[in-house]
């Protein structure tokens, strides 16, 4: 006997799924903004800061890049309260996402910074630009132009990875799908719909990032 797929049974739950989708989108946007800020600070500190600060950044980046996101999430949500830091599930989800993307973008942006020719920095200094002006107008400007595609794909990877936050009951799209599945038992249908929603989200995000890239870096690409 073959099973008949029944998508109609999902219709009453469209608002639950939509709320989850919105949460995932907001989570992605906020953690992208904050994560890239962390990454920029981390990469700048690593390249131009004192040695001890550079080491802290290295340890942070390697710790995050070599452990699964779900373990980081569990550590923040279950582990930190034992050490006295209590977070609700939404805050923990946001924090974990920022920390995770922060580490990856540090590494990506650092590669961009290192690709900036030394002569450009010296030229800036000889024009009496301050350290910050050189960093802002010469180093980061060129670095971001170079690493923008890599950063874009990392943002999409992190967005897809965010499905895991449902495991600490942060109410994202996957959480919504789990909820619906537990109500009407149409597991496969609801997960298929959620999966396709993620696929569309990934494709749209890629297009949006490409568009933004064109606006920001007119000369490149």
């Amino acid at each position: 006997m073959l099973y008949k797929l029944q998508f109609a049974e999902l219709l009453p739950y469209w608002d639950v799924l939509l709320q989850g989708l919105v949460f995932t989108i907001v989570l992605t946007i906020v953690s992208t903004a904050a994560g890239v800020a962390v990454g920029t600070a981390g990469a700048s500190a690593r390249t131009f800061g004192p040695a001890w600060l550079g080491w802290i950044v290295v340890v942070y980046v390697e710790l995050i890049r070599n452990t699964p996101f779900i373990v980081q999430l569990f550590f923040i949500f279950f582990g930190l309260p034992a050490a006295g830091v209590k977070l609700d599930e939404t805050t923990a989800a946001f924090l974990a996402m920022v920390i995770n993307l922060g580490a990856y973008s540090t590494e990506i942006i650092r590669a961009g910074i290192e690709a900036v020719p030394k002569g450009h920095i010296e030229a800036g200094v000889s024009l009496a630009m301050t350290k910050w002006e050189v960093l802002r107008h010469i180093v980061l400007n060129q670095a971001f132009r170079k690493i923008y595609p890599a950063l874009s794909s990392q943002i999409i990877i992190v967005m897809l990875g965010s499905a895991v936050v449902s495991q600490i009951s942060a109410q994202d799209l996957t959480y919504a799908a789990n909820f619906v599945a537990s109500r009407d038992f149409r597991n496969f249908e609801v997960y298929l719909v959620a999966t396709l929603a993620y696929l569309v989200l990934a494709i749209v995000t890629r297009a949006v990032l490409r568009g933004l890239g064109r606006i920001f870096f007119k000369a490149a690409s």
């Binding site: 006997m1 073959l2 099973y3 999409i156 897809l160 990875g161 965010s162 499905a163 895991v164 449902s166 996957t174 799908a177 597991n187 496969f188 997960y191 298929l192 959620a194 999966t195 993620y198 696929l199 990934a202 494709i203």
Partner: peptide, 20 residues
């Protein structure tokens, strides 16, 4: 590449079961 690994796990877990 465009969908979460977690969702793929769910789809395989519940999808294969549909064939009995």
């Amino acid at each position: 590449q465009g969908t979460p690994l977690l969702m793929q796990l769910f789809l395989f877990f519940f999808g294969i079961a549909l064939f009995g």
